[in-house]
Computed example of a mutant assay.
Amino acid sequence: MKQVAVVGGGLVGSGWALVFARAGIPVRLFDASEDIRQAAPSRIRASLLDMLEFGLVDDVDAIARRIEVVDSMVDAVSAADYVQESVFERADVKTAVCAEIGAAIRDDAVVGSSSSGIPASMFTEQAPRRSRFLIAHPVNPPHLVPLVELVPAPWTDPEIVPWLREAMEQVGQVPIVVNREIEGFILNRLQGALLNEAWALLDAGLASVADIDRTVAHGLGLRWSFMGPFETIDLNAPGGIEDYAQRLGTLYHSIAQDRRDPKPWSPDLIEFATAERREVLAKPELEARSAWRNRRLMALISHKRGQPER
């Protein structure tokens, strides 16, 4: 990647711009909203200053200078080797934007979509140069949480996935490949399983919102911040993963059987959970708490960088 374009300048798009600029790559950022275009530079600089405090970047000005906000889609994407599309998460919006991107890119450019769960086949089928499109789904904020899910459409050029996986690794991200399209991909299906169980436990009156959150923040999440579920269980029984499966596989199967008829998140339950959360965090404080979360992530990343992988 020698030139990158980011289409969509909100929280995810701005984070992506930081990922590439931090790696030394010039970025052209475009958003259809003039307000978002005007706000992007200050948001990006504020993030960089926080990252500087935690030792995650060295030169704020140099990184910021690599990000140019432009006033048209064509200006952003026409010379780009790679385009990261990060517009509103709706198939019709992405269809229109990808058609515009596809008409303006070079024949050899690659376009990754930040879609959280909508497969690329739902919005790139009619796009010009559709073989150059795939999903490149980050975790928000992408400049702090490095995972990227790469999901090709049925018509994606097969040479693109290995190229983009290597390119993402070179800019400091941690890519995974989803071998075929599935709604929600990998991350949100895992997160969805936990969320659905959390809502079911709340609905049954078994624990409060706060105590369910504590279970993850002070229990499961501590291990999950540096290892995944298979490594976790491999280390949680003396004989490894097969020993764990023999000991607890029946229990987990029984739990899964208990949830064979999942209920949607009901309006009453959502209202109940919202009320408990608003007691501890008023709605006007959400933005400040998000900034606190980002700074906690920065501290965790800084710590992990100083620890051995093995």
Rank of each mutant, 00 (worst) to 15 (best):
T250G: 12
P158R: 08
S208Y: 04
I186E: 03
Q173C: 13
R259W: 14
A167F: 03
A200F: 07
S208Q: 07
P238Y: 04
G172N: 13
L194S: 04
Y252Q: 07
W199M: 05
E166W: 15
I241V: 12
Q191N: 05
W199N: 00
E159Q: 14
L195E: 07
I186Y: 01
R189A: 04
H253C: 14
M168E: 04
I241E: 05
R223T: 03
P158I: 12
P229F: 03
V209L: 09
P175F: 03
T232N: 00
T232F: 01
N188H: 07
V171G: 00
A210Q: 10
W199P: 02
S225H: 04
D234Y: 07
G172W: 09
D213E: 14
A200N: 05
R214G: 05
R259E: 14
V174I: 08
V174M: 14
L164V: 13
V174N: 14
P229I: 05
E183W: 15
R260C: 10
L235P: 00
V178F: 06
Q246M: 11
I186W: 03
I176V: 15
D258W: 12
G228S: 11
D258N: 11
W163K: 11
N188V: 06
I186K: 02
V174C: 15
V174Y: 14
E159L: 12
L194D: 00
L202P: 00
D258R: 15
R247S: 15
I255H: 08
G184E: 06
L202S: 09
R180F: 06
I160C: 03
Q170D: 13
L220C: 04
A210N: 10
T232Q: 02
T250P: 06
F226E: 02
L222S: 06
A167I: 04
V161Y: 03
Q246H: 12
I160S: 01
L187Q: 05
P238N: 08
I182N: 08
I255F: 09
Y252D: 05
D213K: 01
L201K: 09
S208N: 07
S254K: 10
F226G: 08
A200D: 10
Q170F: 05
T215D: 00
L195H: 11
R180N: 10
A217Q: 07
V177H: 08
Y244P: 01
V178M: 06
